[in-house]
Design a protein around this nucleic acid. Structure first.
Length: 310
DNA sequence: AAGACGAAAGTGGTTGA
DNA sequence: TCAACAACTTTCGTCTT
C-alpha cells in the first residue's frame, strides 16, 4: 500500500523514501531505520477517488457515514407546527406529549453524544488512532449511553474507556498513561470505567500481546529494525515457555527490548526503556532476569559485556 | 556520578471461601 | 464481603563502572 495523498513522503530521520504505512495500527514505519512516524499525521488526505462514468455510483459524496456522527443522520423528528392543522382534540394533546418527551430524551442524550463525540475525536486524533478504532470507540460509547452506563461517571472517563477498549479490540494498544495524557482523566479512573463498560456490554477482551507494543517503544528508543525484530523473537520464545501469562504486556515488551538492545550492542539504560514503556526499572529487571534465565541467554549476554569492555 | 541490583513495604485489583 | 494473593510500584541502600 502506497502513500498517495499523504503529506509524509520521506523519513524525517534518515530521509529514506522506503516507508511502510500500517493502516491497521495507524503507524508509518521507515523500513530503513525503523522509525515509527506517528506525530502530526492528523490529515490522512481525502478518501475520494475518481471513477469512470459507468462506475460513478462508487464515488463518495457527502460525509462518510460513521458512528462518530452521533445519530447516523437518522433522527426522526416528531413534526412541527405545519403538521398540526390536521389534528384535533385528543390527537393534539398526544402530539404535544410526544413532542415534549422527545425533546426531553433527545436533548439529554443527543447533547451528551454530541459533546462526547467531539471529545472522542480530540483524543483519538491526539493519539493518532486509525478511523476504524475511532468508529469502534464511538460505537462502544453510544451503546454505553443507551444502557445508561454513563450515569455517575464523567463523560470524559467513559470516552477514554471506550477508546481504550476499542484500541485493545483492534490490537492497536495504547497504554493507560497515554490515554491519561490525551484525555486528562486519571488512569485509574480510565481503567475502572474500561472494566465496567466492557463487562456491562459483554465485550470480550482478549489479553493484549506484548509484540504489539514493540514497534512504538523501539522507535521511541531509536533502536534499529534488527533489534526490534530480535525483541519480537524474544517475546515469542517467552510466550512459548509461558513466561508471559499473568504478566503486564508492557513489562514484557520493555524487557525484551532491553535484552535485544544489549545483544545488538545498542545498549539503553533500564531507565530509558522503563520510561518509554511506562513501567519501572524494577519490573524490567524482574522480567529481564526471567528472560535470560529461562531462554538460556546468559552466556550470550556475558559475551557482549566482555566485547563492550574491549 | 550514574547505572544496575535487590530487599522491603505499599498499592490496587482479582479470586475464592 | 473479606482475606489471601500476584503483579507492580516506590523507596532506599549497596555495589560496579
Amino acid at each position: 500500500m502506497g502513500l498517495q495523498g499523504h503529506y509524509i513522503k520521506r523519513c524525517p530521520e534518515c530521509g529514506s523514501v522506503n516507508l511502510h504505512w500500517d493502516r491497521e495500527k495507524g503507524e508509518i514505519i521507515c523500513m530503513d531505520c525503523g522509525l515509527v512516524i506517528e506525530d502530526k499525521l492528523v490529515d490522512f488526505g481525502k478518501d475520494w477517488r475518481e471513477f469512470s462514468d459507468e462506475d460513478a455510483s462508487k464515488r463518495r459524496t457527502g460525509a462518510p457515514l460513521t458512528f462518530t456522527q452521533y445519530d447516523q443522520g437518522l433522527r426522526t423528528d416528531i413534526g412541527s407546527k405545519e403538521d398540526l392543522f390536521q389534528l384535533e382534540g385528543k390527537q393534539k394533546n398526544k402530539f404535544f406529549r410526544l413532542r415534549k418527551w422527545q425533546e426531553r430524551i433527545s436533548t439529554a442524550i443527543e447533547r451528551n453524544l454530541k459533546m462526547a463525540m467531539a471529545e472522542l475525536r480530540r483524543v483519538a486524533s491526539f493519539l493518532n488512532l486509525p478511523s476504524s478504532v475511532e468508529n469502534e470507540a464511538a460505537r462502544i460509547y453510544t451503546l454505553a449511553v443507551q444502557r445508561g452506563l454513563v450515569r455517575g461517571r464523567s463523560m470524559e472517563s467513559v470516552v477514554a474507556g471506550a477508546i481504550y477498549a476499542a484500541c485493545r479490540r483492534h490490537d492497536v494498544p495504547r497504554t493507560l498513561d497515554e490515554l491519561q495524557e490525551a484525555s486528562k482523566v486519571d488512569k485509574k479512573e480510565i481503567g475502572r470505567t474500561y472494566r465496567f463498560i466492557t463487562r456491562e456490554l459483554g465485550i470480550t477482551i482478549l489479553p493484549n500481546n506484548p509484540v504489539d507494543y514493540i514497534p512504538r517503544f523501539a522507535s521511541a528508543l531509536r533502536l534499529s529494525p534488527k533489534t526490534q525484530s530480535k525483541a519480537v523473537e524474544i517475546v515469542e520464545k517467552a510466550q512459548e515457555k509461558e513466561l508471559t501469562s499473568g504478566r503486564g504486556p508492557t513489562g514484557i515488551a520493555a524487557a525484551a527490548l532491553y535484552v535485544a538492545a544489549l545483544l545488538n550492542k545498542e545498549k539503553r539504560t533500564q531507565r530509558e526503556v522503563a520510561d518509554v514503556a511506562g513501567v519501572t526499572e524494577v519490573t524490567i529487571r524482574n522480567r529481564y532476569k526471567e528472560l535470560i534465565e529461562k531462554l538460556g541467554l546468559e552466556e550470550e549476554i556475558l559475551k557482549r559485556e566482555k566485547e563492550a569492555k574491549a
